[in-house]
Design a binder for these strands. Structure first.
Length: 669
DNA sequence: CTAGGGTTAG
């Protein structure tokens, strides 16, 4: 019996005062069955008028009608309250009300049962409840089916249950299809899909997203093209599919063509751009989205803020903050934490800290974000203080907290303290992961305790991740330990033959020691293995635009003035005592040429551009995709003094805050 | 929004 017929019958009866006598009959004779069974089902089982004595007093009809309406109203409002309890996850209150209801309908039972389909792990209770429903309807069966599927009970059990459903509607079929699709069983899903009597857009969507999930983009496209009804869900699923497979152009085309877009659609595009390293485009789209009047939610914000962090678009991040500030998301911990981490990654610790203090309900992720922020800035003591404060309020640290702590010790040069924290992890019941070992190797290696670093690698309870040898190699370069460098490089390249970093580091070490024959050898084998080095580049945000520079850049329109500025600075720097560190010019060319190459490093270009264009009182924030080069580090210190400017450089491992000729890292990096 | 419940996209 369909819902529409039921409600129609009911309203019809109630509205028609002249039929109210028949109501009374229904009510008195079948009262119990009528309400305890779901389906108010059979008003027709009492053929209207037939059983009714003509002498029935008419004055009582309005009374009974009112009484009836009152009862019904009670049930309806109780059902509503139960539903709201279930929605807010409060099963106890829902049950309390449920147990106090003298009359229950199947709707009442279904509302309760729905809790179990949204919450996993109580499949037995759900089944017991289902079995108690006096007259389960199709919806009851559907909810139970989705309970079975959501609890990843054996799909065969779910299928058997599905087959037992006496009257299946489209949703029953759809639920079963999505059960198969979620389990990756697309051929079964397809079989049901072709068998089902009526398909709605949900059926098509379930199949399309199922194919995308199991990696069969072509089949998804095929279905999408023939689908008679394409809802916004299907379009969005396809956009996700195209993005996932790197077909950005196709995703863009769909996005342009589709008739209706909602927040999920926009998010899919934005997140897709961010994941495919096109954060700029993602951010552009976000601006368009807000302009078109769509209000972001938490998950949407998180992907946008991640985009801001990656491309260091602090100005846009601030705009997002403004938006959050004016919305109910202001009280959301996840939204706040995303903002903190955005500020930290853009190097704006002051605003991160302000926000951290404002957030009332901090979770472990919030604390971790702030501790990592301090760690990245090299503010080791602040990070460690915050950790103590965190323990003070009873917050339990997790493994990420310890990564942040070790990073803090590392960047602040607190070697022994780092070792202590590493050893204390067991006391906190936190498992040591490869990340922790990587931090420790960096910590020990950088401090020159190379042998201890190697011992730690040997003691690792798992196969060392190849990157850890890259870390060791970096340490060898600082401490000019050629023997260990070769050991590290050999390991690195045997684990990961395509590692550009391994070749480059080794070549750099040879170059630094003027072993040009070896450099040539490494470069040759690099070519043979078809390894491509990640080109280094730097960028900075100016207004809403991001300017990018490559080493020896030839493209940026302002190059003439930048070169002038750098040549001028070069002279002033030398007068102040700067000696170009030719170790970092990694080509076997004459000294003068080396100096010229050094002066065209991407970070210097970006800094010079910043000096020309960024207002005097504003710090210059430069970002680099690799680690900052040693000569540039030295040069920028001089520049900060000569120009009396604050210059902040974020590289892959930390922030360097240059001021008055000094760097916040204390030259330990 | 239509007394309520189930299925699809991040």
């Amino acid at each position: 019996m369909s819902k529409r017929n039921l409600s129609f019958n009911f309203k019809h009866i109630i509205r028609n005062q002249q039929h109210s006598f028949c109501l009374l009959i229904i009510f008195s004779s079948t009262k119990h069955r009528y309400f305890s069974s779901s389906t108010i089902q059979n008003p027709n089982a009492n053929p209207q008028g037939k059983a009714i004595p003509s002498s029935f007093p008419s004055h009582s009809s309005s009374f009974s009608s009112n009484y009836m309406t009152h009862q019904l109203g009670d049930i309806i409002s109780s059902n509503k309250i139960i539903t709201s309890y279930v929605h807010s996850g409060d099963l106890d209150s829902a049950f309390r009300l449920f147990n106090n209801m003298p009359i229950k309908t199947t709707v009442t039972w279904n509302s309760i049962l729905a809790w179990y389909s949204k919450n996993r792990g109580k499949i037995c209770e759900a089944r017991q409840l289902f079995d108690k429903i006096p007259e389960p309807d199709t919806v009851s069966y559907n909810i139970m089916l989705s309970c079975l599927i959501n609890n990843s009970v054996d799909i065969g059990t779910a299928e058997a249950f599905f087959n037992q459903i006496p009257i299946k509607d489209t949703a029953s079929w759809n639920t079963m299809i999505s059960g198969f699709a979620q389990g990756g069983k697309m051929s079964e899903a397809r079989k049901l899909f072709s068998l089902m009597p009526q398909r709605n857009s949900v059926s098509w969507n379930a199949m399309i997203s199922g194919y995308i999930e199991s990696g069969e983009l072509d089949l998804a496209v095929e279905l999408f093209e023939v689908a008679p009804v394409k809802s916004v869900v299907a379009w969005t699923a396809m956009i996700n599919g195209y993005m996932k497979f790197g077909k950005i152009k196709l995703a863009e085309r769909l996005f342009k063509e589709m008739p209706v877009k909602n927040l999920v659609t926009w998010s899919a595009m934005i997140a897709g751009y961010v994941e495919k390293c096109r954060a700029e485009d993602g951010l552009k789209l976000f601006r368009m989205m807000v302009r078109s009047g769509i209000r972001p939610n938490v998950s949407n914000l998180s992907s946008v803020l991640l985009g801001c962090s990656e491309s260091s678009a602090l100005q846009l991040g601030r705009q997002v903050h403004q938006l959050v500030f004016k919305s109910p998301l202001y009280y959301d911990t996840t939204a706040g934490t995303s903002l903190i981490s955005m500020y930290c990654k853009c190097g704006d610790l002051e605003d991160a800290w302000k926000l951290f203090l404002e957030i009332q309900r901090k979770d472990v992720v919030t604390w971790n974000a702030m501790i990592s922020g301090f760690a990245q800035q090299g503010a080791g003591e602040k990070a460690l203080c915050l950790f103590n404060e965190m323990k003070g309020v009873g917050m339990k640290p997790d493994w990420i907290t310890f990564v942040a702590l070790l990073l803090a010790c590392n960047h602040a040069g607190l070697v022994d303290l780092g070792v202590q924290y590493f050893d204390s992890m067991r006391d906190y019941g936190v498992e040591t992961k490869p990340d922790h070992y990587a931090c420790m190797v960096d910590l020990l290696g950088r401090a020159g305790r190379l042998n201890e670093a190697v011992d730690l690698i040997k003691k690792m309870p798992f196969t060392p991740p190849s990157a850890i040898f890259g870390t060791l190699l970096g340490a060898c370069r600082i401490h000019k330990n050629l023997e260990l460098a070769e050991f590290a490089a050999t390991n690195l390249l045997s684990f990961d033959p395509s590692s550009a970093a391994g070749y480059v580091q080794l070549a750099n070490i040879y170059a630094a020691m003027n072993r040009w024959d070896h450099v040539a050898r490494v470069r040759r084998s690099m070519k043979e293995s078809k390894v491509v080095k990640t080109p280094g580049y730097s960028w900075l945000e100016l207004g809403s635009a991001v300017h990018e520079f490559r080493s020896g850049d030839r493209k940026h329109p302002a190059l003439v003035s930048i070169h002038e500025k750098l040549n001028d600075l070069g002279k002033k720097m030398k007068l102040a005592g700067y000696v170009p560190d030719l170790e970092y010019a990694l080509h076997d060319v004459g000294e003068e040429q080396k100096e010229q190459l050094l002066l065209r490093h991407s970070e210097k270009l970006a800094v010079a551009f910043g000096l020309i264009n960024v207002p005097l009182e504003t710090p210059i924030r430069v970002f680099k995709n690799l680690r900052v080069c040693g000569d540039c580090h030295c040069a920028i210190k001089y520049i900060s003094a000569i120009e009396r400017r604050d210059i902040i450089v974020r590289d892959t491992s930390r922030f360097h805050h240059f001021k008055n000729g000094l760097c916040s890292c204390g030259d330990y990096w």
